[in-house]
Every structure is written in C-alpha cells, then in structure tokens.
C-alpha cells in the first residue's frame, strides 16, 4: 500500500491555500452560472464566492496529472465509447428480455498495465458506464479492478471482457498521453 497523506487536522494556512485550485474554482463558477442560466456580474461574483467556500469546506487532494491530450485520439475514445454504450445497451436489453435463460455471470480481476491513478479512475468510470460490467472492487495499490460481468457465459466470454478492458485502457492512455511508455508494443490504435 502506498501511504495516503493524512493531514486533515491542523492544516497550515499554506496547505489551506493550496486547496484552492484555480481550475476547480473556475469550473464550479461556470456550473453555478449555468445553473442560474444567466451570465451576469452578480452571478459570476456570487459563484466565485460559493466555489471558494466549497473548496475550503471540502478540500480534495491534488491529482497528479501529466496530460498531453491528443485531440484526434480523444475524439476516437469518445466515439468508440458511445458506440460501445449503444451496442452494450442493446445486449443488456436482450439478456433482460430473454426470460427463459438465467444469465451466467462472472467476477473477474483485471490488472491494469499503467500505474496512474488518473487512468485507473477514468477506466473504472468508463467500464462502469458501459452496460454489462460493474466495478465491485478497485485496488489503488496494485491498480487492479474487479468487475462483475453480466452473462459472461464461459471462460471465452471472460477473456473477451478482459481484453476489452485492456483495449479501453490503451485508448485512454493514448488519448490523454499519460504513461504511454508503459504500453506494450503493437496492438490496435
């Protein structure tokens, strides 16, 4: 286990300031303005105040991100993801409506190739959003995901799911540009 920094109590003023991450404050302000649906000076100022209070009350650790976003790869990642969601939704709907057959599920372990927390988070989120797979356990120390797969049927289905997750991880890494050097050579783009 990697040590998790525990410094909630006795936060120094300096650490408190580091909690105010500019992108987060700007993003929260944007959400505030969008929720009010009107771009006015009062909305922006009040949004800034609320964002700063939120950041101070709920401090989050900074996520080390070494991103080099590649726009084309990112578009491909999103399109491929939407395609996967549509295909998998139809599959899950079919499994649901096939009343004469009980689904044969599986719980599988997928040990991700990269060691970035950010990639782990993105892959886990995307795997969860695609129907038919659910993350039951995630290990940050070893970057391992445990998935519950709906109707995997047999070991061939399990292997297929596993290789799909690895392919997704590769697409995520290529799109976001973190730790590309860790990827094995070859493979589909």
């Amino acid at each position: 286990m990697r040590p998790v920094p525990k410094q909630r109590r006795g936060v120094t003023p300096r650490a408190r300031l580091r909690v105010l991450q500019l992108p987060v404050v700007l993003w929260l302000t944007l959400v505030w303005v969008a929720l009010w649906g009107e771009l006015s000076a009062a909305n922006v100022v009040f949004g800034l105040v609320v964002s700063i209070v939120v950041c101070l009350v709920f401090p989050l650790p900074t996520l080390p991100m070494d991103l080099h976003i590649r726009p084309l790869r990112l578009v491909w990642l999103v399109l491929r993801f939407l395609g996967d969601v549509v295909v998998a939704s139809v599959e899950v709907a079919w499994i649901t409506l096939r009343f004469w057959r009980e689904p044969r599920n599986a719980v599988i372990e997928v040990d991700l190739e990269t060691s970035s927390d950010f990639v782990l988070t993105v892959v886990a989120e995307m795997v969860s959003l695609v129907p038919g797979s659910l993350v039951v356990e995630a290990r940050r120390s070893t970057h391992t995901l445990f998935l519950h797969v709906l109707d995997a049927r047999d070991t061939a289905g399990v292997d297929k799911m596993r290789s799909q997750v690895y392919a997704l991880e590769r697409r995520v890494v290529r799109a976001l540009g973190t730790e590309t050097q860790r990827l094995p050579e070859g493979g589909t783009p």
Binding site: V85, V86, A88, S89, V92, A93, T96, F99, E102, P103, N105, S128, L129, V130, P131, G132, L134, V136, H148, L150
Partner: peptide, 21 residues
Amino acid sequence: GVLRFPDVLTRMHSATKPQVL
C-alpha cells in the same frame, strides 16, 4: 430487469445501465 434478475449485482446492471443511454 430489476424485477426479474436473481441477485443484487445482476439487478444493479439493470438499474444503472440502460439508464445511461
């Protein structure tokens, strides 16, 4: 799916997923 599937995890697939799309 929520009515028909046998256990919590399988039902979770139904309860959370078709909703995405």
